[in-house]
Simulated assay, not measured.
Amino acid sequence: MKHRQVSMAGWVLCVTLVLAALTGAQGQTYQNFLQRHVDNPRTNLAGQRYCNIMMARRGMTRPVCKPLNTFVHAPGMTVARACTWPPNAQGYYTTPNRLSVTICRLRGGNTRPPCNYRAAQQWQHYVEVACQAGLPVHLQNTFP
C-alpha cells in the first residue's frame, strides 16, 4: 500500500507539471504579443529614454526588470504575415520583409527596479516569431 501511495503521488506531480507547462504555452496570446512587442507608429522618444519609458509603460519593469525586449515598428498584422509562411527547422516563422525594430537591453546585472535600458535601433531586420492559430504569440529573434 505504501508503494502505491508513493507511485500515486509521483503520478500526480508529473501530471501537475505537464499541465503547468501546457498552461504556460497556451498563456501566450496575440494580445500579449502586441502589448510586449508592437509599437506602431514608433513612440517619439529618443534612445535610452525610449526603452526606459516603453518598458515601464508596457509592464516589463515590475516586479523585476525584463533583461531584453524588442519592439517592432510595424502593424501587428504585418508581423502576422510571417505566420502564413512555412516555419524553419526550429518551428519559427519569419516575416517576409525586413522591419524597423528597437532592441532594449538592461544595463548592468541588477534586475531590480529602477530599470535602466540601452537602446539599439535596427532599421531593416527580419522578425522571427512563434505562431498559434495563424497569429504571432512570441518574438523569438530578429536578424538583418
Rank of each mutant, 00 (worst) to 15 (best):
R112N: 15
P113V: 05
T29Q: 05
D39I: 00
C104L: 08
T95N: 10
G109A: 15
N110S: 15
H73F: 03
G24A: 14
T111H: 08
A119Q: 14
A89H: 11
R107K: 11
R98C: 06
L68R: 11
N97P: 02
P144C: 10
A89M: 15
C14W: 10
A20I: 03
V127G: 11
Q122Y: 04
V6T: 04
N44G: 06
T95W: 00
Q121W: 00
A120S: 14
L45D: 12
A25V: 12
A9I: 10
P41I: 02
I53T: 14
V129W: 02
R112F: 12
H125L: 02
R112G: 07
P86F: 04
A56K: 14
Q121D: 10
N141Y: 01
L68C: 11
P86G: 07
P63R: 03
M55H: 07
P96K: 09
M1G: 14
R81D: 14
T94W: 04
Q140I: 03
M54E: 10
T23N: 07
V101C: 08
H37N: 14
Q124G: 07
T84N: 15
R105G: 11
G10D: 06
M8S: 09
R112Y: 11
H37C: 07
V101Y: 02
A89L: 14
K66W: 00
T142Y: 05
Y117H: 12
N32E: 08
P67C: 02
R36A: 08
M55V: 05
N110T: 13
G134Y: 04
A9V: 06
E128Y: 00
R62T: 15
G134R: 04
Q132W: 04
V79W: 03
A9H: 01
G24W: 11
M77E: 12
G91A: 11
Y126A: 07
N44W: 01
G47T: 14
V12S: 08
P114T: 08
T84Y: 13
L45F: 09
V38Y: 02
R112D: 13
A133G: 06
N110Q: 13
Q122T: 01
C65T: 04
A89Q: 15
V129M: 11
A74W: 00
L19I: 06
P144H: 07
N88R: 10
P113T: 03
A21P: 01
N40T: 07
S100E: 12
V38T: 06
